[in-house]
Design a protein around this nucleic acid. Sequence first.
DNA 1: GTCTATACGAAGATAGAC
DNA 2: GTCTATCTTCGTATAGAC
Lengths: 185, 185
Amino acid sequence: MSRQQIVAGAADMLRRRGLNATSIREVAKHAGTPLGSTYHYFPGGKDQLAAEAVRLSADFVSKVLDQQLRQGPAEGVRAFFELWREVVAGNDFKAGCPVVAVAVEEADHPEALAAAADAFRAWSAQLAASLEEHGVEPQRAAQLATLVVGAAEGAVVLCRAQRGIEPLEAIATELTALLASAVRT
Amino acid sequence: MSRQQIVAGAADMLRRRGLNATSIREVAKHAGTPLGSTYHYFPGGKDQLAAEAVRLSADFVSKVLDQQLRQGPAEGVRAFFELWREVVAGNDFKAGCPVVAVAVEEADHPEALAAAADAFRAWSAQLAASLEEHGVEPQRAAQLATLVVGAAEGAVVLCRAQRGIEPLEAIATELTALLASAVRT
DNA sequence: GTCTATACGAAGATAGAC
DNA sequence: GTCTATCTTCGTATAGAC
């Protein structure tokens, strides 16, 4: 089905170019469909398309988290950072997170922005729940989960700017140690 | 002088809208100068203007850091987070960091991207140097400094998406504690 | 040196032919 | 239901009048 291809292509373009530079025209061309088709599939226009692209990416990450967190918070966090490492390094440091792309550009796209907020909240909630299950008290678990999500996203930004994977590795190392000590406590 | 106003206005627009949605036309209008003037002051076009806006913001942060770090790394980090808290909360959660804005949008703006990389490196280096002075070993100091910069930038993104200051506060709390323990060690 | 006017392309969105 | 053609607006950049 070409609808899925359009959304996936939009997510990919969001990763690289950001929201404003992702044109519906080019998304359509990349998916091999005419411009009119995108407005048939997505009558809400760019806002709807961007929102679906964000949800697609967010759900993928959530599924990986859900699976890996069964082996405990440490494994979940490791997988989370590994995901971002693959995105950044696998795209020559020219791609990042589509959720961030939507969040940092003020535009008239309320549905997409809401999807971005939901994505961050969902990831944090998954991590926090796992930490709680392993003995971290609720408030601290939420704080640590927010730190992991925020630091990972920030790390991706730093890696893109500096065209190297070092920031992500440094941040992953520090957070892995911090979480290990928090769970142990 | 209007040149400074143009750069400051560009930085402000970058914060809110991102790189691609910041048009030279509107920057000129906002500064009260005709479009042609901007190309007189900035013959390198948008790339040069964005690069100067990034450097202006980066230098401001560096100066604050330089001053506050004299009272030790804890005070420097506190001031760093306070800066971002003011930017985010003072703009109704609709503004962020112009350096991030440039870093996350792949565009043909090499000078601006280089300025963004320099900004992140400079802030990290300042923090790392202060940590070293207070007994943290070099490699660890660099790792912690990268974490602080990345986590703060990520926190700003989360705050914008969720339209609230909580992520920044949570992350600042965790990092303050982590740094205190690292310096003490 | 400052600014007006404009060239040229691409954006979001829609109307309406097939 | 699919797609072409087009409307309108805005982008970067420049030429050339004052």
